[in-house]
Each structure stands twice: as C-alpha cells, then as structure tokens.
C-alpha cells in the first residue's frame, strides 16, 4: 500500500512533455554513486586544468639537491628520483592523461559512429566493405603497432599528438561494430520508412532519426572508451612508449616504479598517480553504469 502511494506521488510530480533524454537525466541525477563519481571526475578535471594556479613548482627541472625526498614540508607529496615535486607533476600529469583520454575518445567515437552508421544504414556491399576494414583494424596488435608508429613518427610531430593519433586510429573498431549493430536493429522500425517516405535524404535519416535513437548506446560506449584509453595511455607511459618523458603524465610517473628500489622503499613516488588513476577509472565506469541505467526504460533506480 505504501508502495502504491509513493508511486502515485512520483507519477504526479513527473512533469509533462518530457523527452526520453529529460527522463534519463532525471534518473541519472537520482543515482548517488554516479553523481559522486561525476563530482570526483569534475574535481580532477578542474584541479588539473587550474594546475598553474595551484602550484608554482617546475615540472621538468632536475634538482639534485632534493632527490627522493619524503612527503612533508615544502613538497606535500615528496619528490621523485630527479628531485621534482610529485604533487606538481601529478596535477600536470592529470592534464595530459585527461587530454589524451578526451581527445582520443572524441576521435574514436566520431570515427566509429560514422563508419558504423553508414555500414548499418546502407547494408549490403557498403556494409561488407566497411566491416571487413574494421576487422582489419581490430586485428592490429595494439601495443606493438603503437610502439612502432610512435618510434617512427617521433621527432617529426609533437610526441603527444602522435600518440593521440595512433591510439585513435587503432581503437575505433569496437565502437563501429556496436553502432552498426544498434543501427541495424533500429532501422527496421517503421519510422525510418516514414522518414524516407516524407523525403528525407539518407544523411538526414541517419543524423536526425537513427543516431538520436542509438545515442544512449554511444554515450555509454564513450565513457567505457574514455576509461580504457586513459588506461592505455598509462600502460604505454609505464612501458616508456607513451608521451615523451619530458611531459609528465600519470603513466610516465608510474614508470618510475619499474625500479625495485622505488617500488619497495619509496611509495610516495608511484602511489599518488596509481591511486588517482584507479579512482578516476572507477568513477568513469560508475558514470557509465549510471548512464546505462538512466537510458534503460526498464530500470527504475
């Protein structure tokens, strides 16, 4: 009985004329875990962007006088083996890691969506061609290819953008496949026939009718991709093939732990990037989960 009344109240307070996206937004705002994660991610982004205003330490200058200092005093989180302030590098590293993550995600989603929606909408020969190309790209050994391309292109272009380009080029395949499968299912609906019969161009049918209806999947996929790519960047940085060593990133900072001495005795050098990386990835995944629930009409969380 109690349940019935609360449901009735909920029904009443629900404003009329809500688009499916407005409903999803409402549901997302009620999801505590996703909201906490959003705030955390937002905080990380803000702190990283405002790094120059928060700390004035130099991020690249080697300082022999203050090597491997423990946390405390002038250096909140201590210094690394070259005497650079860990806290400062953590903030600046966040900038790079997030920049790589966001840019790559944008490119990956863009390219994957374009390829997937064209393949799904037209079907037949176009579909076959594009999907075989996708399979081809998906079959590249990711790490090896990134390392080789990065080495060849290094010095010719700014190292950071080489990395972004290479990661993006190799990662769009999964998104293309998912978008294609969603479009294939969605285009069987009669409203697509209706859109064609009222004289919409194929491009308009895709952009105005198909994509808005698979957008929820794309958004969820974007968050997953975002998390994956930040991890990929860190993995490459850890191996020493990520962004150039002169630019701090979370992955670069982690590579210091390759030395047993640092790993065992100087946790303040590698723990901060490891922790912040883990929590960031977790919160991105929670946001993704929350979005998935919000867009699912059957969930009522």
């Amino acid at each position: 009985m109690v349940n019935v009344t609360t449901n009735a109240v909920k029904q009443q307070e629900k404003p009329i004329n809500m688009s499916p996206f407005a409903i999803a937004r409402r549901k997302f705002l009620r999801n505590k875990l996703a909201m906490v994660s959003s705030f955390f991610l937002l905080a990380v982004v803000i702190v990283s962007v405002l790094a120059p205003y928060i700390t004035t330490q130099d991020i690249t200058k080697v300082n022999i006088g203050s090597m491997s200092l423990e946390p405390g005093g002038e250096h909140v989180l201590g210094t690394d083996k070259s005497g650079r302030d860990v806290f400062t590098r953590l903030l600046y590293g966040g900038r790079i890691s997030l920049l790589v993550g966001v840019t790559c995600t944008f490119l990956v989603i863009l390219f994957g969506t374009v390829v997937g929606s064209i393949a799904g909408f037209y079907g037949g020969f176009v579909d076959g061609l594009l999907m075989r190309f996708t399979d081809f790209v998906l079959n590249f050994p990711f790490l090896v290819f990134v390392i080789v391309l990065n080495t060849i292109l290094f010095g010719l272009v700014n190292g950071l953008w080489v990395l972004i380009g290479v990661i993006s080029l190799l990662s769009w395949g999964g998104v293309a496949r998912i978008v294609r499968s969603k479009i294939l299912a969605e285009k069987e609906n009669e409203y697509i026939l209706a859109a064609i019969s009222i004289g919409c161009k194929p491009s308009k049918v895709i952009v105005k009718h198909l994509l808005p209806n698979v957008l929820s999947t794309i958004i969820v996929q974007a968050t997953v991709t975002f998390a994956t790519l930040i991890v990929a960047e860190s993995a490459l940085g850890f191996l020493g093939f990520g962004v150039p060593q002169s630019i701090p990133s979370w992955g670069n900072m982690l590579s210091a732990s390759q030395e047993a001495d640092v790993l065992r005795d100087k946790p303040w050098i590698w723990m901060p990037p490891a922790i912040i990386l883990t929590i960031t990835i977790l919160s991105i995944n929670f946001i993704g989960e929350g979005l998935k629930d919000a867009f699912n009409p059957k969930s009522n969380r």
């Binding site: 004329n17 996206f21 409203y191 209706a194 808005p212």
Partner: peptide
C-alpha cells in the same frame, strides 16, 4: 525524393512509426 511529395503512407504500427526522440511538432513539420 521530389516525387515522394505526391504519395504518402500511413503505417500499420502506431508505436513503431513515430520517432521516439521527436516531439509531435517536429514529426508533423518535418
């Protein structure tokens, strides 16, 4: 596309034949 102006269709399934992300105004004005 130009010829389509003269012949239109009313579909069978009223649930699948309207784009769920469009408002009625958008659907009819398109």
């Amino acid at each position: 596309r130009k010829a389509r102006k003269d012949f239109q269709m009313v579909f069978q399934d009223p649930y699948a034949s309207l784009n769920p992300t469009q408002s009625v105004g958008d659907i009819v004005s398109e």
